[in-house]
Design a protein around this nucleic acid. Structure first.
Lengths: 173, 173
DNA sequence: CATCGGTTTCAATGTTTACTGAAAACTCGA
DNA sequence: TCGAGTTTTCAGTAAACATTGAAACCGATG
């Protein structure tokens, strides 16, 4: 193996390791983040065995987390003619990655919060003491804000990349 | 205790419990989220003992997580004349809560990612194989995007509430 | 400077989450 | 229908994370 290939391998391993560590902070499990990093920087789709070997992890682990990435929509399964094994490739377009993650996080983080706040606002609506009113108002304010965030998130996640950039430029210029 | 007060207590307990559960999903520990919920809906500042009693948790736990909330900037310590104990009160303004959380998350999630991507881009810059180039390009695209997100985050977190709403209305209208 | 009211730290323990490895189930060609 | 190749599941184990409770600490007061 020549020196450039070796250098690349090293750079890529570094990226995979660091991205994995980062994933932990983002509340995503290390392996899932590592597989994502690996596939994002893979020239061709990889099989489960490739992933196992590269990351030195068990089959079960590789399988579970690859499927989880597919469920998120960050990774696609591909089949090759004449091959029975499944291969996986990651979405590489950063804007698509972003919108996918944004949608998923909204679904998992914002929507449940909204449900809770609505419930709590409703439960406290008719309490007529001053403290009851204060509590209800707090719930309503939180609810309104989260609703607003939810809408923003939807709109942005559905924008085309070019449009988003243009808009941002106008806003921030 | 009259019926309204009882109802309120119930509604509040519900909120604290649910917010705690939500916190878990957000990657924040349950107790910290519960204390936050408790303080956000407290008419007056609470002492560590109040928190311990309300949530039925140990002193150490209450202490650690309260201080963590102070470190995030979501909770303030207040001292009362003639009282030696420390009391705590939460920021209740939703926009302030949002900007605080946004800043903190940027610091913890975006900045480290940016550092990693810059490093990886640099490390792969001079690799001249086609694969090396592809890797470098991928790193650069990720880097650029995260940088962009970082800027957006900064700007928004520094906006006044009214301005943000106005802007959003224009965007989404 | 001893005591009191309180805060802070931390080793031990409990709880949750991730990972392994092997068995079961599935798939397809012969 | 069998069996080789492959995917999927899952009970058991390991690692990470949260919590307790008690001791150390701190500063104000008599």
């Amino acid at each position: 193996m020549n020196v450039a290939t070796l250098q690349l391998k090293q750079a890529r391993d570094e990226f995979v390791a660091q991205w994995g560590a980062l994933g932990t902070q983002w509340g995503i499990n290390r392996t899932m983040a590592q597989i994502h990093a690996l596939l994002m920087t893979a020239p061709q789709p990889l099989s489960t065995d490739d992933v196992m070997e590269e990351l030195e992890i068990s089959r079960g682990n590789a399988h579970t987390n690859t499927k989880e990435l597919v469920a998120w929509g960050l990774v696609r399964m591909v089949v090759r003619k004449g091959e029975r094994r499944e291969f996986f490739e990651a979405e590489k377009d950063v804007w698509k990655i972003f919108t996918t993650v944004a949608r998923e996080r909204k679904r998992r983080e914002i929507d449940p919060a909204l449900a809770v706040l609505r419930k709590c606002a409703e439960n406290s609506q008719e309490i007529q003491t001053p403290e009851g009113r204060a509590f209800f108002d707090q719930m309503r304010q939180l609810e309104e804000f989260v609703e607003f965030a939810s809408n923003m998130s939807d709109r942005i996640a559905n924008m085309k990349h070019g449009f988003a950039v243009q808009m941002a430029a106008k806003l921030l210029g």
